[in-house]
Simulated scan of single mutants.
Amino acid sequence: MSSPISAITSAIAPPAVVAPISVGETSGANSASGVSFGAMIGQALQNGQQVQDRAADLAVKAATGSDIDVHNYLAAATEANLTTQLTVQVRNKAVEAFQEIMRLQA
């Protein structure tokens, strides 16, 4: 089983090559040189959802009395908690950056 930290870092780790973003670009499609920013965020959110689903599944099994390893449940719950905290902090930073950009334009 992977550690919560490695799962989080793998969920947000940037790809080896990131496509440059041009001002005139309107499509969010991947270019030949890398992955779009939107795709990276989408993949990170998808990984976060998978972590949440796994923790919820183990929580249901624990609540119904199924035979589970308590250590796996605790690790999954902690990983889900850390993933949620990370997602919230990334969102907060994105909102702060957007607000700063809007202040610059005023």
Rank of each mutant, 00 (worst) to 15 (best):
A97I: 04
V88P: 00
Q43I: 04
S33K: 11
A29S: 12
I8K: 07
G24F: 09
A11I: 00
V17H: 10
S10I: 04
V70A: 13
D53F: 08
A94W: 00
S33E: 12
A56I: 10
Y73N: 06
R54I: 06
T64Y: 03
L86C: 14
M102F: 03
T83W: 09
A75V: 15
G38L: 11
T78W: 06
S22V: 08
A55I: 03
G34Q: 03
H71V: 13
A7T: 13
A75Q: 15
D67Y: 00
L58R: 07
G48F: 06
A19M: 14
S10E: 12
A16V: 11
A44L: 00
E79P: 01
A32R: 09
M40F: 00
A62T: 10
N30P: 07
A75T: 15
Q43N: 10
N92A: 14
H71E: 09
L58P: 05
T83R: 10
A76H: 04
G28I: 05
A59F: 06
G65N: 03
D69S: 10
Q49R: 14
T64E: 08
N47Q: 12
A29D: 12
I12S: 01
S33I: 12
A55M: 02
V70L: 15
F37L: 14
A76F: 03
G34Y: 03
S10D: 13
A7Q: 15
E25W: 01
A11G: 02
A56L: 12
R54Q: 13
N30D: 14
A59V: 03
M102Q: 15
I68T: 02
V90C: 07
T83G: 04
G38Q: 10
A63P: 04
V23L: 09
G38S: 11
I21Q: 12
E79A: 11
K61C: 05
A7H: 14
Q50Y: 07
Y73M: 14
L74F: 13
S10V: 04
A32K: 11
D57T: 15
A63M: 13
L58G: 04
R54M: 08
I8R: 11
H71S: 14
V70T: 14
T87M: 10
L74S: 15
T87E: 01
S22H: 13
S27V: 05
Q43Y: 05
S66K: 13
Q46V: 04
E96P: 01
P20C: 03
G48T: 07
Y73P: 05
L86V: 13
S22A: 09
D67Q: 09
D69P: 01
S10Q: 12
N92H: 11
G48S: 13
I8F: 08
L74C: 12
V17N: 09
V88Y: 07
V95P: 00
M102C: 06
A55F: 03
G48K: 02
Q99N: 13
E100Y: 08
V60S: 10
V23Q: 11
T78L: 05
A59Q: 12
A80L: 02
V17M: 07
N72F: 09
E79V: 02
T64G: 01
A7E: 14
A62E: 05
S10K: 12
N72L: 13
S31F: 02
V35W: 01
